[in-house]
Nucleic acid binder design. Structure first.
Lengths: 355, 355
DNA sequence: CACACAACTTCTAACGTTGAATACAGTGAT
DNA sequence: ATCACTGTATTCAACGTTAGAAGTTGTGTG
């Protein structure tokens, strides 16, 4: 009916055909558009009276500097990506939350890229995923081995989470890494089980394909603790660090929970494995923690509301996220410091599953 | 030591000082930059041999069209935002996952905005959050009432999830809405409890502040089912649709689960409330489902691995996400169709908690 | 040989922004 | 009255891309 092509309502001010730009503001304020820019960015001194006049024009038109123009001019987008296997996994949702907050504190916006742990997609990320759009990437790789990253020429500032992409020989890292002390935390967690009287403790979550990943390191700490007490070591691989993964492995392992050498403790490489494991154990008529003690990693909220509640190693996620954002933004700012491995804190939260 | 300011390694090709642009590609391929543009965008016909030559140059230089330049020229960023209360809540993580996939199918990238259900921040989103950067927004509001949205002039294509921002009087919606049939699904779920012999069924999750929100509609369906059977209605408010929220409410309500009129069923407005409720019920020595049947909404994976496993109403999330993306992109493309309310499917998944 | 047509080039312009350089006015000193 | 200086404000140019128009080849057709 109306001739207004914008389709906006009647009562409200009609949607302008074109978003206002600096020139519109300048025209309304009666100054040059550069002065408007100066007011917006504080680039050059502007007289108070002029500033007020410009500000009034900005408010009246609802002017917001166009991001594309600004990005083009400045060569920066103030956009970071967080590349993770899958946002549905609680740990990564927690991580994303922490990273979004940390980035916002620096005026940065975060966009989530799900890799689904596919080597192909992870390789794409490593090689400079959306280098046309992003200022930097925070990358939590899963399938990528240490050697892969070195091959990719660092086209885009990148920070790695976890040790997976570190050279096994201890050589120079290709990018900054942020990690928790997996060996120490695994030792702590295992010591906790031993202290509560467990003697036959299994480890769930070794991975054949990993050379330097989370699972390997946690397994190493677990092994060190048991060997220090002269106790037997028994490790099982997991296809995926997920609830179904944990359920599957433990399901195929149920006969190891009966007989004279029955397992009475299970160190799981993360909370999901532990919850999947507990689910199957319960279905098989085994009691947690009475028959088997179970613990995991990540400190996800699931462990607070699981039945029984779950003992877990919780990384200091906000510290991790802030550090990762600081490091990647330092590179964006031009830093060429030698990449390093940074360790953030963790703590063991003891709950019902290991009482 | 090296004079190379890029800081790149030695073996790998040094990071170029400047990212290649169309002119660099054109020079290498021996064609005009316009031809490169034509190859990249398919704007005009190009001979196969030429196309190949250009493609080789693109690959060799690792050329990727600069997003800022392209956005500026085309007036579109191919960026959508998904505004949700909090990514850590499993339902929203599932939703984000579905939206990311749906958007990717259209060449769009998604950026997550967490509103924390703060009215202030939700208002900002409604008024055209990052209109300078985004092509559109998919918005799952929590605190926003129906009237608020109308006031905001639609500066940015927006699709709303859920009924919260619909006018109560059934008037014209200010934007497209995508919903599930909350009344019908609540009736189904409640009928399921009645069919399994429950007679004293409570509802968890009404909200005083809502006029047209999810909780109100699910309560209406619940009420309709009970009244159809002449059974008593008993509803309780929840401070937040979270596990702690569910735990808190049920914790203060434990005496309603003993005595002659003891509740033997609990319809919870979402899975989180249900899991929090089950947690407290168990701690108080009550058995689910023996003493109390419990169910929720959202179909989150938590309900598969909870103890007991949880009966839930699962929305068809991929349909919901695809529809939302289609609708918002239609607006981006210039559609001025009258906003409508679109309903997607759901199904009741029966598990242990209501056997 | 004129003509149509395809493939490509050249040229112009514009998207909105901001750094660098420059112009301008007003003040105070010489 | 001239000059230097300071505080403001302005003009210029460029970021990388693409749309459009007009011109230039080369090839094949009538």
């Amino acid at each position: 009916m109306s001739e207004d092509p914008s389709g906006a309502g009647d009562g409200a001010p009609a949607r302008p055909a074109r978003r206002p730009n600096v020139k519109d503001v300048a025209a309304l304020a009666g100054v040059s558009w550069k002065t408007v820019s100066n007011v917006v960015n504080g680039t050059a001194p502007v007289r108070d009276s002029t500033r007020e006049r410009v500000q009034r024009a900005i408010d009246e038109l609802g002017y917001r500097p166009n991001a594309a123009g600004r990005n083009l001019r400045q060569g920066r987008s103030r956009l970071l990506a967080l590349a993770i296997p899958e946002i549905r996994l609680a740990y990564f949702a927690d991580l994303a939350h922490a990273v979004i907050l940390a980035a916002k504190a620096h005026g940065y916006t975060v966009l989530i890229d799900e890799t689904f742990a596919e080597p192909g997609h992870e390789q794409v990320v490593a090689e400079g995923f959306r280098v046309d759009l992003l200022d930097g990437v925070i990358f939590s790789p899963q399938a990528l081995a240490d050697s892969d990253l070195v091959a990719a020429g660092g086209r885009l500032p990148m920070v790695m989470l976890g040790e997976a992409t570190l050279p096994v020989d201890g050589g120079t890292a290709a990018a900054d890494h942020v990690v928790i002390d997996n060996v120490a935390s695994a030792r702590e967690a295992t010591e906790h089980l031993i202290a509560s009287g467990r003697r036959r403790i299994g480890f769930l979550g070794v991975r054949a394909t990993e050379t330097n990943g989370t699972g390997v390191l946690r397994h190493a700490g677990y092994k060190a603790a048991l060997e220090a007490h002269g106790l037997p070591v028994e490790a099982f691989p997991a296809p995926a660090y997920s609830r179904p993964g944990g359920a599957e492995v433990v399901g195929a392992l149920l006969d190891r929970f009966t007989g004279p050498d029955a397992l009475d403790g299970l160190v799981c490489a993360n909370d999901f494995l532990a919850i999947g494991a507990m689910h199957v154990l319960r279905a098989a008529g085994l009691r947690v923690p009475d028959d088997v003690a179970v613990l995991g990693w990540d400190g996800t909220e699931d462990g607070i509301y699981s039945n029984p509640t779950l003992t877990t190693v919780a990384p200091d996620l906000s510290a991790l996220a802030e550090l990762a954002v600081d490091l990647v933004l330092a590179r964006v700012g031009g830093s060429t410091a030698t990449p390093q491995v940074h360790t953030v804190g963790h703590r063991l939260i003891v709950r019902e599953s290991t009482v």
